[in-house]
Design a protein around this nucleic acid. Structure first.
Lengths: 114, 114
DNA sequence: ATTAAATGATACCATAAGGTATTATGTTAG
DNA sequence: CTAACATAATACCTTATGGTATCATTTAAT
């Protein structure tokens, strides 16, 4: 059960931003640090936490550590959220309406995967 | 942009458990407290944070406060995760394989909504 | 062999977070 | 009216968190 580590990792805005960067290309710690105004030590801590949440994987290459986005973490969060669908499907009134509204808004931004 | 408040709210295991309870039925603060071993004051703080994250809504009824699960927060998180799909679709190799595996596993648990 | 580059590992600091205890306030039942 | 109920608000405590600074280690380049 790594879901706690994953949610914890996603709770920090800097870490979510790191994931955004890594979604475009994998990077070394130094390259990630260049995109922020905090020290490399701080970035390293964030990367450790992202790894614990299975949101990234790290690959040692010589003296460098390549950080790569990993699907498992986000997939686990999607699954967790999916749990609520069964209840919403059965509910009535204002809540059901809210769900429908949310879905309508979402159809524009989600592709169906993850 | 309430996404930060939502992620923050989801980072705590007690709060996620509260959401699970509220998914089955709406409850007053006292009723939620009965399901945990912490004080009512602590539960109230959690409910405040869940409300800030738009994960629940609160409805005052006389001297009671009814806490109800709300779709907006989780929907926003789903959208945020959805952002990564476009990148994964274009990637090759081990990462792509991992995504496919994750999707295959997920088809069993997600319904397509939220 | 030496030096510079990239990272690892600690120690330390300030603030946020989760929790309790206590006191105050609004509501409903007799 | 008054007592019991449900919650609000505040103060306070302990630990977790995000951050820096410093020093050690490993690898690449000259």
């Amino acid at each position: 059960m790594h879901i706690q580590e994953t949610f914890r990792a996603l709770a920090d805005p800097t870490r979510r931003e790191i994931l955004m960067h890594l979604s475009r290309q994998e990077m070394t710690i130094g390259e990630v640090t260049d995109r922020f105004e905090i020290t490399r030590a701080a970035v390293k801590k964030h990367l450790n936490i992202l790894e614990e949440g299975q949101l990234i994987s790290v690959h040692v290459q010589g003296r460098e550590r390549i950080n790569r986005l990993e699907a498992q973490g986000l997939s686990a969060v999607s699954d967790w959220i999916g749990y609520f669908n069964q209840f919403w499907d059965q509910r009535l009134g204002a809540l059901k309406t809210a769900v429908e509204d949310a879905e309508a808004a979402k159809r524009k931004s989600i592709k169906g995967k993850i």
